[in-house]
Structure formats: C-alpha cells, structure tokens
C-alpha cells in the first residue's frame, strides 16, 4: 500500500471535501428543486454517508459518490412534495430616475419571470440556473449532470424559448 494514500477518514481531508463540494451540491439541488432547506438536508445526509463509509471510499471517487447519493436522495424526497421556487431579487436601487410606473412594471416582470422559471422542466431549470446564476460553463454543467455539452446547449435554448412564450402569454 503506498504510504501517501489520502484517506477520506482523515478529518482534514474530509473538511477539504466539504469545503470544495458542499456548497456546489447544495446549489445544484436548489436549482433543481427550488427548496433551499431540503437541499441543505440532503447535503448533510450525503456527507454523513460519506463519513460513515469513509474507509471504503477512495479519495478520487468521493466527489462522484457525493453527487450520486445527493441525486438519489433528492429523488426520494421530491416524490413526496413539489415545492414552489422562490428566488430573491436583488435589492432595488436606492437612487433612481425611473418613474414609479416603470418600477412597478419592472417588479411585475420580475415576478412573472420568477413564475415562469419555477414552471420550467426540472432538467431545463437546473441547467439554465447553473449557467446564468452560478456562471458555470456548459462543459462544467455537462460533467456535473453526466450529459453531453450539446444536450446542455439544447436545454438552454428550450429554457429560454419556454420563458419567452410564458412571459408573452401572461402579458396578454
């Protein structure tokens, strides 16, 4: 056995894994299902499973182990209830030369957009938000979800088309 094999059971290694992946997995689950609390619960569960099984998991496989557990857990959890997404909008600018009517229209638009996003298909929503909010490249997303870059491009396209259609019809 090589002397310098990294063990997940070592506290420092485990901490490093947490710092590197916990946040990303959490946001991934959040974009997928739109429930931050549930996402955090699943992350906690996944890392606890990693800890319990630390002696069986080699360091290099830890990341995929975590994602796999998170994906499986989320499927179980979400079958029971579908939550409504809530996205906080950025604080309004304090100084503005925009008219109140314009601001109201803006807020209305944001709300509609919010609804339209929550009505997107799961697969489209996770890809779209990972790219737009998390600023991940298509390649990174493809790797994370285990799909092709082409598939990511298509989902992005479909997500935008569907948002546009929803906003158009709600304006009538």
């Amino acid at each position: 056995m090589p002397e310098k094999e990294i063990s997940v059971c070592e506290e420092k290694v485990y901490e490093q894994l947490y710092r590197e992946h916990a946040e990303k997995i959490c946001y991934y689950l959040y974009y997928k299902y739109g429930d931050m609390e549930k996402a955090q619960d699943i992350v906690q569960d996944s890392f606890a499973k990693l800890w319990v099984n630390c002696s069986n998991i080699i360091f290099g496989a830890a990341k995929s182990f975590l994602y796999k557990i998170a994906k499986n857990a989320s499927i179980n959890a979400v079958l029971h209830q579908k939550t409504v997404l809530k996205y906080q909008s950025i604080e309004q600018k304090t100084y503005t030369n925009e008219s109140p009517e314009f601001q109201m229209e803006e807020n209305e638009f944001m709300e509609k957009l919010n609804n339209a996003i929550s009505e997107l298909r799961e697969g489209q929503r996770e890809v779209f938000l990972l790219n737009r909010i998390e600023k991940k490249t298509y390649r990174e997303i493809a790797e994370m979800l285990d799909i092709s870059v082409k598939a990511v491009e298509k989902r992005m396209h479909l997500a935008l088309v569907s948002l546009r259609t929803k906003l158009k019809t709600s304006n009538l």
Partner: peptide, 24 residues
C-alpha cells in the same frame, strides 16, 4: 436580451460553509 438581463438580477440564498461544516 431582457429575459437574460432580468435573470441576472436574481440572487441565491447564502450557503455558509463554516457553519455547515460545524453542523455536519
């Protein structure tokens, strides 16, 4: 363009890594 601009204004909830690690 409008949609993409508006989406950029959305924020995400905060994930506190240190607190999360302690709880973990």
């Amino acid at each position: 363009k409008d949609i993409v601009k508006a989406v950029d204004r959305f924020d995400r909830p905060v994930f506190d890594i240190d607190k999360g690690l302690k709880n973990q």
